[in-house]
Design a binder for these strands. Structure first.
Lengths: 208, 208
DNA sequence: CCTTTTGTTGGACACCCGCTCAACTGGCCA
DNA sequence: TGGCCAGTTGAGCGGGTGTCCAACAAAAGG
């Protein structure tokens, strides 16, 4: 097993544990136990446990983002892309990844490696949205004088709603949140009301 | 010193420590040390440390909310109230309180007492906004067919932006965030562009 | 084949956690 | 003055943490 593979195996084990116990409560011994190896091994590949946790967060968040980007790439017009983005953002499949985000945001102020990973990946999500918005403005589908502001407002609105769903469970329903987010985003981008939600639902849309 | 005073003193000490070390990293010994008392005392007044932390969060969040509501009560028309709300939401004064929110959202899934405090206080903030929006609709200042949705979208948007400011520090500027949030909220409530930010700035508005 | 290198082990270290409990203190009442 | 008791102490318990490191195993190189 190559050095790189071993590192990935450690990160994967850390992810599995963190999903069950939380990022902050994931320990060296947990990870070693999950891998069936010794605890010393982890420190042979990582200088500190903080780096393991930051790597775990980064891998989860990167995979989550890559999945989203792949799905978006399969759609061709900006309106459909945006509709897909909004309709899938609160999917239960993303709950565990979103809990990683909550943990990262909370810990960012005290763990430098995490803050760097968290802020750069947050920017990546906003950039993904910015690309959609700019292409929509270019094609005439959207009407928006400030795509940068719209992209940040949109991710922030979605994150704020997702946060309620994941942290508080029953306070907001997923479907209701989609409708509320869509309404605001439609107004921000000069779309007719309902365009984002009445569109033929893309693969994996809505939620149970 | 009465029982109630002692409890409050413990909570206050826990708050001081939590501001420095984070809610999750605050220990019984830290709190006792800050008070200059023994660790046993804390357990004489609280059944568990989790309850101390939940109480600390609740006190910070309640005070933060009460301050906001008092300021709003001093203003009379809905537009001025909403402008004040938006212009003060990202104030540096609120940073430490907001870090408590980040910690609470992260920990909510694993600490029942915290989840209850966090979700009910989140609803209180949304209700505050809902009251403003409903009075604005009644007075004809706002145009909004779904005040409930608008209130949730607005808190979520503000929380999402505040989260970037507090967790990632330099990714977004406070002033820029106010402008972006205001633009979206104005569209949601049928206000003329700039009404929320060009209004005579209320006490403590903007940020350095 | 024997040495060297590399990967891996798991016990040990120093420190921290929440929580319990017997012992102590000091003010109040009889 | 003596007894009482709520308030308070802090050592101690069982268990946890990240990190280090001498010892071992196994593959690589001569």
């Amino acid at each position: 097993m190559s050095q790189e593979d071993r590192r990935e195996a450690i990160i994967d084990a850390a992810i599995e544990v963190a999903i069950e116990k939380g990022l902050g409560a994931t320990t060296v011994r947990d990870v070693a136990g999950r891998m069936g190896s010794s605890s010393g091994l982890i420190h042979h590949y990582f200088d500190s446990m903080d780096l393991v946790l930051a790597s775990a967060f980064r891998k989860v968040a990167e995979k989550d983002l890559a999945t989203s980007r792949d799905e978006l790439a399969a759609l061709d017009d900006p309106v459909t892309q945006l509709a897909h983005f909004v309709n899938t953002y609160f999917s239960p499949d993303r709950d565990s990844a979103f809990q990683f985000w909550l943990d990262a945001w909370s810990e960012a102020g005290r763990n430098g490696a995490l803050q760097q990973a968290s802020s750069s990946l947050n920017i990546d999500w906003q950039q993904t949205l910015l690309t959609i918005i700019e292409s929509g403005v270019a094609s005439g589908d959207f009407e928006c004088s400030d795509p940068l502001g719209a992209s940040w407002s949109t991710v922030s609105l979605l994150d704020g709603l997702a946060l309620q769903i994941v942290a508080h469970r029953t306070v907001l329903s997923r479907d209701q949140s989609i409708l509320w987010a869509a309404a605001t985003i439609e107004r921000d981008l000069g779309l007719r009301s309902g365009v984002l939600t009445h569109a033929a639902a893309p693969v994996g849309a809505a939620s149970p």
